[in-house]
Design a protein around this nucleic acid. Structure first.
Lengths: 347, 347
DNA sequence: CATTTCTACTGTATCGTTACAGATTGCATT
DNA sequence: AATGCAATCTGTAACGATACAGTAGAAATG
């Protein structure tokens, strides 16, 4: 609780041991509350010497503006809402993102509020809540669809936001994305260089935008390097057991692939299990390339060829983008795409 | 921003399209603002019919109390701060905890604010910040030490909190913990049942409380089932590469262990790599038991014997505990310990 | 009938901050 | 000397909610 009584002090000035407010500083400097407020904001109508004096006292007292006061008066919440899908990732995907974001926010007055939601439920709910209650100055969302209704709504309402992933319907907004097209293309290249020609793709669910990016990169890769696709009837969102089973069946078939491209690290673990269940071996019977956000796959099978997606970096970029957007920077200038990193030798 | 101008309406009553406040409801019901406030809190001095009427209108309008207003007036933030160590876990440990917490908070007015900090820096910093700025009603912390200064400080200041892990210095406080002693004991039991007698332990850093729990369970296990310890000079916090190297050396030695107990899932991956680098095989030359918070190890090596720690459940328990503590429930009643879950056959 | 008691409701002040509309001062200009 | 004009500083009101100290009217009490 922030409110404690004032003991043995003039009622209007916070006691020394209380948390200091503008009033405290005003009292100590002999200035008016308004002057102190404006001095701390470096307003042009306050004398240089006064500003200096106020800043000194404020620092001395360890003054921190009361967030509730600011928020009530100005509507500025100093909150960035991170909307996460609960089932987003089994492996620390979202934690890395949180850490990346908070790295950037730690130098600012912003706090992160995490708003998870099960993606079986309506993904619009958390966004609507934030808009209706005005509970954040900016929003970060992921699992973006080509014509994402959340992006539409946030744009329409003028709420600053950044996305992890792009849209594809003429919507302009801040985003950070991994170059999934480049990844898939380069993945095929690597497989073909190892003499693989019959390649399967474990792709993301088709409703997400990057499904298309992966597909295009994959297909131009097949074309450019002369390989063909072996269809795989399961996506990265499927339960790991399903992925394993489907891959096992595929690998036992006569026309089994000799290469697999996998668009998610956790799914790669299941794919690997399916391969082994079919009695095949990576490096011998086939090769696998996978994207991963946490460097773990090579600990499992050094033979897996991995591309790293730096999710913490993504978090940083998005945090910077939202803040810039809040500060009025044009969305066009707040878009970035990161390239896959191919560690030369796992580990 | 929460503040928009009022267009074409009496200045004192929010326009219909604005977010409704108590004033809106007061206007619509013809009651005073105070009455509305008290009616919504179900205060005893308001008539039953009036309460009903106010509630109806409030629901109709989708009224949600303005958090800044409440916070400014009462000091109640409706925020639970989750203090996370950035390097806590490579694998989705913390995300699971966040999801567990938010499951519980979703039915309440509480929000989660995530406050990460690098544990190379002073772990007291975030806690001090929260206390000084009064920015939360409750706190959740992890990586607890036997005489944890954060626990001392929070207790001293009367800030409700819950911990993931216990202290061991006569401090009474809400916590949720995994029964690491039972885990280590049962782990040894399982190894001995498979005929293993020379067992190594990959233990947590000794400053954490559960180091002692693991040690005791391990040692009584060795004693009860008749086995001996092979020392392992590295802990679960070490870089994975270090763990692998140390384990490899150990496994190549003449007196290599035939069993390993591992207190963290991510470390188990590195231990496994070390074993394989030394040319040994799980199930043949030795067995390994590991705790894990995300069911991943058996996808890597089905031979690893795993015990599951349900971190999402831990999150739920801690969230419930902090809220109960905020509501004045005695700390003694808010302590829980979860047992290791041994899935009969991995997967 | 006067008085007390109770029920149901309300006005005012306040939390900390900032927008806004002044107010004061000194100094240069007429 | 009067006026204008920066340059500085300040009081008041307001954001939305609630604690507190009432008030009005009805009902119970004597």
């Amino acid at each position: 609780m922030e409110n404690k009584g004032n003991f043995g002090q003039a009622a209007s000035v916070p006691a020394a041991r209380e948390r200091p407010t503008l009033k405290t500083i005003a009292f100590m400097t002999g200035l008016g509350v308004t002057t102190v407020s404006r001095a701390l904001k470096d307003a042009p109508d306050i004398g240089a010497e006064t500003k200096e004096r106020v800043r000194m006292v404020a620092r001395q007292l360890g003054y921190q503006p009361n967030r509730a006061g600011v928020r009530l008066r100005t509507g500025k919440t100093n909150v960035i809402a991170l909307v996460l899908s609960i089932d987003e990732e089994i492996m620390g995907f979202s934690s890395q993102m949180v850490f990346g974001i908070s790295e950037v926010l730690s130098g600012t007055p912003y706090h992160i509020v995490v708003t998870p939601h099960s993606h079986s439920k309506d993904p619009m709910l958390p966004v609507r809540y934030i808009l209706e209650t005005g509970s954040a100055d900016g929003v970060i969302i992921s699992r973006i669809e080509p014509d994402d209704p959340r992006v539409r709504l946030l744009t329409e309402r003028g709420m600053p936001f950044a996305t992890h992933g792009r849209t594809d319907a003429g919507l302009t907004h801040p985003f950070h994305d991994f170059d999934n097209e480049a990844f898939a293309h380069q993945a095929v290249e690597r497989l073909v260089k190892r003499g693989r020609r019959r390649i399967a793709l474990l792709q993301p669910p088709s409703k997400l935008t990057y499904y298309a990016h992966i597909r295009i990169g994959f297909q131009t890769g097949l074309h450019d390097y002369g390989a063909e696709e072996v269809p795989l009837r399961v996506n990265t969102d499927a339960p790991l057991a399903d992925i394993r089973d489907v891959v096992e069946v595929m690998m036992r078939a006569a026309n089994a692939p000799d290469g697999i491209v996998c668009s998610a690290g956790s799914a790669a673990i299941a794919v690997n299990a399916g391969i082994e269940a079919a009695g095949k071996a990576l490096g011998r019977d086939l090769d696998m390339v996978s994207k991963q956000s946490v460097p773990i796959l090579n600990w499992i099978r050094p033979e897996i060829i991995t591309a790293q997606e730096d999710v913490r970096q993504a978090g940083r970029e998005m945090a910077k983008a939202v803040i810039a957007r809040i500060d009025g920077v044009e969305p066009e200038l707040l878009q970035s795409i990161s390239q896959p990193i191919w560690p030369e030798n796992g580990r």
